[in-house]
């Protein structure tokens, strides 16, 4: 089991004839991800990596029954692209595109919510359920099917978290990257609820960052969860008000609650095992799982 995407997902790539789209298509087909087609205006009827190209998402959905989309259109086209995606009834959309205007991000988030769909991004590295489906900027060869859920704003940092889990003999049910922008479609809270309900997930790693209140909402959900959560919040040592790479990661001076330290403290007091450095995640997860087994045995 997994969340959001699995072997029964039917996946489209929006912009499949572009450089990024083709690269993703090649990876997906090579790894056995259920890619069923793609779109590219003016290129309908062609094929990429053996899957058909359609003019619109609606036509692709009608022909293939697709329910998931990976999109890497240019920033100026992103809002129109996501509008097309959600109007066609897509359930899960990953918007990989970076530098999307924040007002467009707010509109696409509202559209997704109005349709009951899940938008990851903008600026999301995607979602992968190892061995089942990969809509992510993660290499299939570097993930391992298992029972730990991972949810992170960052893409590259999940590499490190996953390696840490593997070093302890663990693997992943699903890895979800929310996106590094200030306004993204989906927050930690929603993903934690999905992991809590997923019979294929035993525990969760949450990787947050400075800025905003999303990790505080996550802490409120953690209080209601039975599964252990290991949390790391990057930027523990980030100077206030310095932009640290992600547009979303500014812990403005004066906004104490938005600092990484305040967020990690909130997650700890909600019951998470908090770690100060990312290389401690694996060992902390082993300890959290053992503690849970101990609690069940007694």
């Amino acid at each position: 089991m997994a969340i959001l995407v699995d072997a029964r997902s039917r996946i489209l790539i929006q912009g499949i004839t572009g450089e990024t789209g083709r690269a993703y298509a090649a990876r997906m087909v090579a790894a056995g991800t259920p890619l069923v087609g793609g779109t590219s205006p003016g290129k309908a009827g062609q094929a990429v990596e053996g899957v058909p190209v359609f003019a619109t998402i609606a036509e692709a959905v009608a022909a293939t029954g697709a329910d998931c989309v990976l999109s890497s259109v240019r920033p100026a086209a992103a809002l129109a692209a996501m509008t097309e995606v959600f109007e066609a009834g897509i359930r899960v959309a990953v918007l990989y595109t970076e530098n999307v205007p924040v007002h467009d991000a707010m509109r696409m988030r509202a559209l997704a919510r109005a349709r009951g769909a899940c938008l990851l991004g903008p600026n999301s590295a995607g979602v992968i359920s190892p061995g089942r489906a990969n809509l992510a900027d993660l290499n299939d060869a570097r993930v391992r099917a298992g029972r730990i859920g991972v949810v992170s704003k960052s893409g590259t940092l999940t590499y490190e978290v996953i390696d840490g889990l593997h070093a302890e003999g663990l693997g992943e049910s699903t890895v979800v990257c929310l996106g590094g922008d200030p306004v993204v479609g989906t927050g930690f809270a929603e993903i934690l609820r999905l992991f809590e309900a997923d019979p294929g997930t035993d525990a969760v790693v949450l990787v947050g960052e400075p800025g905003g209140a999303m990790e505080h909402e996550a802490a409120a959900v953690v209080r209601t969860m039975r599964k252990p959560v290991v949390a790391y919040v990057t930027g523990q040592r980030a100077p206030p008000a310095k932009r640290m790479g992600h547009a979303g990661a500014v812990s403005g001076a004066g906004a104490e609650a938005t600092t990484a330290a305040a967020k990690l403290a909130a997650l700890r007091s909600a019951g998470c095992t908090g770690v100060d450095i990312v290389t401690d995640v694996g060992a902390a997860m082993v300890a959290a799982l053992a503690a849970r087994r101990g609690a069940h045995a007694s």
Binding site: T156, G235, M244, A249
Partner: peptide, 26 residues
């Protein structure tokens, strides 16, 4: 990002950048 310590570091990805800062200081 300019700070005032000893080590200058290059990373790929925003999350890795912040995580490396955390790691070095910790």
């Amino acid at each position: 990002i300019e700070l005032d310590g000893d080590i200058a570091a290059m990373m790929n990805g925003a999350g890795m950048t912040m995580a490396t800062l955390d790691q070095l200081v910790a």
